[in-house]
C-alpha cells in the first residue's frame, strides 16, 4: 500500500483521531470514555499510520518503543498511587489540585487523571506491541 492519497489522508486523520482519543481519555471521569477506550482509539490511529507508512516510520513517530510506552504507563499508574504517600494517605488515594476543587480549572488535574493516563499509555503500548510484532513477522 503505497498510495499518496492514503498517506496524506492519514496525516490529517491521525491528528484528528489522536485528539479524539485524548478527549475520550480526559472526559472519562465524567462521561463515557476513559483511559482504555482512549488507548484503543490511539492504537487504531497508529495502526492506520502503519498501513500508510510502514512499521519503520510508525516506530519513528512513536518516539518511544511501544514496550517502553506500556512500561511508562504502569510507571505513571504506580507514581499516581505513590503520590498520596507524601500526604500521609495510603496508596492510590486520589489527590486533586486545589484549583480544580474550587472550580477554577476545567481539567481534573489529579493523581486520578495521572492514573488514567497510565492506563492509556500501558494499553496503547501493549496493543501496538502486539500488532506491530505480528505485522513485522510476515
Amino acid at each position: 500500500m503505497n498510495s499518496t492519497i492514503l498517506k496524506a489522508a492519514t496525516r490529517i486523520l491521525m491528528a484528528l483521531i489522536l485528539i479524539f482519543a485524548i478527549y475520550m481519555l480526559l472526559r472519562g471521569h465524567d462521561d463515557p470514555g476513559g483511559g482504555f477506550i482512549g488507548a484503543l482509539i490511539t492504537s487504531a490511529a497508529f495502526v492506520l499510520y502503519k498501513f500508510a507508512y510502514g512499521s519503520e516510520e510508525t516506530r519513528k513517530i512513536m518516539v518511544l518503543d511501544s514496550r517502553g510506552i506500556s512500561m511508562l504507563g504502569i510507571g505513571c499508574a504506580i507514581a499516581a498511587g505513590l503520590m498520596s504517600l507524601f500526604t500521609g494517605k495510603t496508596f492510590l488515594t486520589g489527590l486533586w489540585l486545589p484549583a480544580y476543587v474550587e472550580g477554577r480549572i476545567p481539567l481534573p488535574v489529579s493523581t486520578v487523571l495521572l492514573f488514567d493516563i497510565g492506563v492509556y499509555l500501558a494499553v496503547t503500548g501493549a496493543v501496538l506491541t502486539i500488532v506491530l510484532a505480528l505485522e513485522e513477522d510476515r
Binding site: 517502553g68 505513590l82 496508596f91
Partner: peptide, 20 residues
C-alpha cells in the same frame, strides 16, 4: 500499614525497570 504494599509494588517496579 504501608509495609504490606511493598511485596506488590517492589516486584512491579523491578519488573518495569528490568524491562527498560
Amino acid at each position: 500499614d504501608w509495609l504490606i504494599l511493598i511485596p506488590v509494588l517492589l516486584p512491579l517496579s523491578t519488573a518495569i525497570l528490568a524491562a527498560v
